[in-house]
Design a protein around this nucleic acid. Sequence first.
DNA 1: GCCAACGTTGGC
DNA 2: GCCAACGTTGGC
Length: 163
Amino acid sequence: MAHWLFKTEPSSFSIADLARAPQQATCWDGVRNYQARNMLRDQMKVGDGVLLYHSSCDVPGIVGTAEIVREGYPDPTAFDPAHHHFDPKSKPEAPAWYMVDVKLVETFADPVTLDALKGHPVLSGMVAARQGNRLSVTPVTDAEWQAVLALGGATRRAPGLAH
DNA sequence: GCCAACGTTGGC
DNA sequence: GCCAACGTTGGC
């Protein structure tokens, strides 16, 4: 199973917004970058883990986790001329932009701040932590995933454990 | 297909 | 609000 990191600006959509959403799930629309598009369209699978990252805010960092609940499908906001994310390059018969659906898994008791990432032997190498990285969707390695969960005060039971 | 100009992102 | 980084655009 693969892991990913999704960036979002909490002023436009935060993990708290996701927690309030119906079924605590949402479509992740508005991604307009081809590298990110390829990952959304081709690589993400139902059940993949997602780190949610807040950017452009007081304390940037990873604030919780989600999982992919629907694999890549055309982003309809690209077809709507009235929509902020409209893109005439994308046509329903030949969509340029894709999105997935995610569902909240956990809000961290202790967010893993960007500072903490930078000072961590494993996490300082994360694609998302690298200076100048502007991708809003990036891959996360197994080692990075485990390290973030450990730092985030993960309370989720391991798969297979009885409740 | 090169590359300068421009726009956007995101930390500080 | 500044500025570095980097993707995209468009002229040639």
